[in-house]
Design a protein around this nucleic acid. Structure first.
Lengths: 204, 204
DNA sequence: GTCTATACTTGGATAGAC
DNA sequence: GTCTATCCAAGTATAGAC
């Protein structure tokens, strides 16, 4: 939300190497996007979170936009790894909904989807950023399609469209949850979905 | 009425009246949010679009944030009016999907949902803006619920959750369409929905 | 590699002329 | 009511010391 209180510090003040600093900046950028949004993710605010100097943003990443893209890369890497792990347990639609529910809860708690949504929304005001963000969102969409194919494949359904809708719901629920500061409606929705999943599953 | 010697000046010729300027600024703010996003909607960029001076933003609205909220108000007013008109033609789920499809297409073409999504996303980086935006999004949610109730009411379904999901899909599809510069996936999704609507309708 | 200092730019906001 | 001028804060980015 809109910066109440002290921002999250992700690194203690010692004398680290280059790799530590890069990581600290990426983590700080994630935190900044999550807590202050795209507009609040400035070189200065990120560096303050990382406990290092503002100039290091440009030394290590060349520009703020590049650092934010690196943050998006990192979030994608972490989550898709977790998603793959979770998807391997899934065989049918009810299971998928249950797993998706748990994972989405994690995503909201950790603010990962916030990072996605803020980068997508923010891309419109930074020339050239859009295509780079799109490139990094693509794996999420591919994953969604793979998950849908796994449980609805061979049913003649247009899994492309279903996957697209799922990503849209994901982002939209995040926007609303962020706006309200309330994740309960999203949770309730997943509960509804889990009661309907067997029904839909039996239709196919 | 006008006394002799003091002709009533309806409007100065060289400069527009206050109301015209306000409207121009609001329209310009909508355009700025749509084309340049929240981050690109500065007092200077908006005033340039409106063809007037930057200082007038503060004279008429006090702050940029207030102008953006006025823009959101105007978008809500325009669209909800249109929505109400459209909803009155609707009696069942297939009709609702058809009407929603047409309206959503309009929303995308005119960039109305972009304004919503940008304001929601941008609110995280401007202290105090979140609650104000939430207040203005509420009518959209109420409308969605009313529409859902109209076609699914009395079926025991949790229409609150369904309406919440619909708003989420709406915002999410917009984010993705904006990112890709492509509205076709959203259109395809509505087409899918219109083939499934009768099926769901018959279930209830 | 990291820090300090600084040039440059943009944006929010106000004062005062017209 | 509108415009010009200006101040001030914040942000990007670079140079150079350590």
């Amino acid at each position: 939300m809109a910066r109440p209180g002290t921002p999250t510090r992700v690194r203690k003040k010692s004398s680290p190497g280059a790799e530590q600093t890069r990581e600290a900046l990426v983590d700080a950028a994630i935190a900044a996007l999550r807590e202050d949004g795209f507009g609040g993710a400035s070189a200065r605010s990120i560096a303050a979170r990382a406990g290092c100097n503002q100039g290091l943003v440009f030394y290590h990443f060349g520009s703020v936009a590049n650092l934010l893209l690196a943050a998006l890369d990192e979030v994608s890497r972490r989550r898709l790894e977790e998603y793959e792990r979770a998807l391997s347990e899934v065989d049918d639609l009810p299971q998928l909904v249950a797993v998706a529910s748990r994972i989405f809860q994690e995503d909201l708690d950790e603010g990962y989807v916030t990072v996605l949504a803020e980068m997508i929304g923010g891309a419109s005001s930074t020339p050239g950023l859009g295509p780079e963000v799109a490139k990094r969102i693509k794996p999420w969409r591919s994953f969604a399609k793979a998950a849908v194919d796994r449980v609805l494949g061979g049913t003649g359904l247009a899994t492309d469209d279903v996957a697209h809708a799922i990503v849209a719901v994901y982002l939209g629920l995040e926007l609303l949850a962020q706006l309200d500061g309330d994740r309960k409606p999203a949770a309730a929705l997943f509960e509804q979905a889990s009661t309907f999943a067997p029904l839909i599953g039996s239709l196919t």
